[in-house]
Write a protein that binds this DNA or RNA. Sequence first.
DNA 1: ACTAATTTGTAAACGGCCATGACGAAATAG
DNA 2: CTATTTCGTCATGGCCGTTTACAAATTAGT
Lengths: 401, 401
Amino acid sequence: MTAPPHEARPPGAGRALPDTQRGMRRRNLARVLHAVSAEGSLSRAAVAARIGLTRAAVSTLVDELIRWGLLEELGPERPGRVGRPGSALAVSGRGPAGIGAEIGVDHLAVCAVDLRGAVRARAVRHTANRGRAPGPVVGELTELVRHVVAEAEREALRPAGLAVAVPGLVARDGRTVVRAPNLDWHDTDLAPLLPADWPLTVDNEANFGALAELWLGAGTPRDFLHVSAEIGIGAAVVVDGGLLRGTRGFAGELGHVPVRPDGPPCPCGGRGCLEQYAGEEAVLRAAGLAPREDPVGLLAGRAEQGDASVRAALRDAGTALGIALTGAANLLDPETVVLGGALAGLSPWLLPSLETELRDRTAGPPCPVTVSGLGSEGPLLGAAHSVIRGVLDDPAAVVHG
Amino acid sequence: MTAPPHEARPPGAGRALPDTQRGMRRRNLARVLHAVSAEGSLSRAAVAARIGLTRAAVSTLVDELIRWGLLEELGPERPGRVGRPGSALAVSGRGPAGIGAEIGVDHLAVCAVDLRGAVRARAVRHTANRGRAPGPVVGELTELVRHVVAEAEREALRPAGLAVAVPGLVARDGRTVVRAPNLDWHDTDLAPLLPADWPLTVDNEANFGALAELWLGAGTPRDFLHVSAEIGIGAAVVVDGGLLRGTRGFAGELGHVPVRPDGPPCPCGGRGCLEQYAGEEAVLRAAGLAPREDPVGLLAGRAEQGDASVRAALRDAGTALGIALTGAANLLDPETVVLGGALAGLSPWLLPSLETELRDRTAGPPCPVTVSGLGSEGPLLGAAHSVIRGVLDDPAAVVHG
DNA sequence: ACTAATTTGTAAACGGCCATGACGAAATAG
DNA sequence: CTATTTCGTCATGGCCGTTTACAAATTAGT
C-alpha cells in the first residue's frame, strides 16, 4: 500500500559487485556471523529464524564458519522450553583480532580486540606529540603495535587489520592526514610509516569515537550526532548505523559552525565559530586559566570545587554548543545527541545551558542529549572494533581473498 | 591493502530480506533495467559488461523484462565497430507510469511520467489553498489525478503509484502531514483522502525537489545539499544518492538554524532563525513590500529594475543564507549546494553575498554553490519520478506481489 | 514410567540461477 | 571471399537454498 521512500541507494546502480551465487553465499555467511555476534550465543535454529533462511541452509553456513575458526560450538543449551535443545554457537575468541591505535596530543595507545569484542592486549605510552614530526611519532606507535601484536599472537590471535585514530581531518583514502592542528601535521600519508602487514585504515578520532558509541554504547540509536572535543570540537554524524563522511571525508566539522556571525575571528577565516566559545583554549581563557597539561581535569576539578569563573565559562560554552547543536539537529533530525570525549567529563556544567538553548530554540520536543559512558577510551575501542566489524561484515574476505 | 571504511549499513543486519536465489534474481532484474534506463539504449552484451553478469544470464533476464512489458527490443544497432551488431534494448514507453502530484499554496498540479522519464500527461489548477481544509483541497487534487490517469491510460499507461508533494513536514510513514504552516494543516493523514488504487507516498516538496535534481539535474553529484524556499526555507540532504530523512522524517529544516542567536524571535520559539532573514515574509518586509500573489516574481522584477531596497533585502538574505550554509557545509561536507525553488529565480541577487559569506568563513576552498535548472517543476517531477524509480529498483514487485 | 508433542540438526532430492563453452549469425577488415 | 570480431542463444554443469523426511533430545500429560 505504501511505496518505499527513497532513502537508500538504488539496488542496481549502487551495488558494485555483480549479484552472483558466490556473492550470495558470502553475504549469508556474514549474516550468520553477525547474528551470532549480536546475540552472543545462538543455536542454528535461532539463527535461521533470525535471518530468514532455513535450518538446513544455516547448518552448512555454520559448518563453513566453524571450519574457518570463526565460530565455535559451545554444546547443548539448557532451555526451559519443550523440544530438543539447540547447540549453542558463539563467535570464536581465537582467530582474527582487530588492532586499534590512537595518536593523541599527549599519548599513544594500542589495543587488540578479538571477534567477541573483548580487549585482549593493550599498551599506552604518554608522550608530548604536539608539534613533533609524524615520522618519530608513528615510529613510536609502530613499536607499541608490534608489542601488542606479539602479545595477541601469544594468545592465538591473528591480526586482521590495523585502524589508527588521529586528532585531525583524514582524507577519504583512509590513510592521509590532511590537517591535524594540534599535532601540526599537514597532508601526511601515514601508510608508509606504519607496518604494511595488514590492511590499514586511518580515521578521525571523532569518527571512531562515534562508531564505538554506536557499537558499544548501551541503547545508542542508529541515527545520532556524536560530539567530542579534544581541543577542537569534532563531531560525527551517524545515519542508519553508518558514518556520514562527506565528499572529502570532512563531515562533522562542528567546531567551525558560526555561532555568532560577528564574534571573534577564528583561524579558519570565519568569525564567531563554535570553537571560539567552546573550544578548549577558549574555555580556559574565559575561565582565566593558562593552558597546561590535562586541561579537562583541571576544569572539572575547579568546577567541582565551585569556582565561579570556571563554571561561568563552561556555562557559556554550553550555550554556544546549544546554539550550534540546534542548527545541527534541525538539519539532521537525529534521534539523540551524544556528548563524548572531553565533553562527557564536563557535561554536568555544560548540559544545563546547552539543553536550555536547545529547548528554547526548538518547536516541539527538543532533541535529547545523552552523555557517553565510554570515557576517553572511545576512539581507541572504535578503531579496534572497526577492524572486527570488517571481519563480521565479510568473513570470506578474511579467510581467502 | 586498505580496509573499507564504515559508511554503509552492515550487510548482515541491514538487509531486511533473506538472501535467497529469488532475491538474487530480483535484484539482477533491477540491475538490468537500471542499466538500460540509465543509458537510454543498450544491447544485451553491453548490459552484461556493465553489470558484470554473463551475456547468457542477461539474455534470460531481458527476456523476462520484455515479457513483462518493461523493456522493448528496438532492433539492430548501427555501430561502426567490427562484429555482429547488438540488438538495442530500451525501456518501454508503455506500461507502468508514475503519477506525481503537488499541493502548493496557490496551485495544484498532477503529472504522469512513463518509465522513460517522459511526461505523458499533466494537469494544473490554480487555487488559493492557504488555510483551506485538507478535505476539499485533496478532493480537488483527486479530480486532477483521475483526469491525468484517464489520459495516461488512453496512452496504454498503467499507474504504478501516486506520490504527493506537500509544502510541509511529513512523518516517516509517508502519508501524514505533520505540519504545513502555509496551509495551516496539522497531523493530517492524507491517505484516506486520496484514491487507494495504487501505492501512495506523501513527502515534503523540498525532498522531491532534491530528488528531481539528483535524477534529472545535469551533472548533479550524489552528495549535495538542496535548498529551496517557498515561504519557509526547506532543505534536503542527499547522501550517496539517497535522501537523509532523520528519525522523524524532519531532516533538512534549514529555516530554523540559528543565524544570529540574539536576533528577532521566531514562531518556532527561537531567535534569529534563518527564516527571519531569508524567509519570504522577512524579505518582503525588509524590502518594504506588502505580501501579495507571486512574491518571487515581484521581487525578481523589482530587483531587475534596480530597486535598491529590494536588492539590499536580497543581499542581506543571501548573507544570512551564507551563514547558515557555512554551518551546514561544515557539518555535511557536501559536494555542492544547489539552490532550487524560489531561490533559483532570485539567485542573481542572493549569490554574491551568499558566496562571499561562504568563502570568508571557510578554510580552504568553499563548497561550490550551483543553481537548479529545473525551475518550479522540481517537486512535481521528483514525485512522479520517485514512483518510476520504485519500479526501476524492483520491477518484480510491480508485476506480481 | 511411558507416551505424545515439540523442537533441533542433518541428509537426500529438488529446483532455480548463473557460469561455462560451443555455435550460428551478422557485421568489418583485408 | 575469407578471416576476424562481436552478439545472442543453447546445452551443460555446479552452486546454493528449499523442501521433505527422519532421528535425536527434551517437556507435558497421564
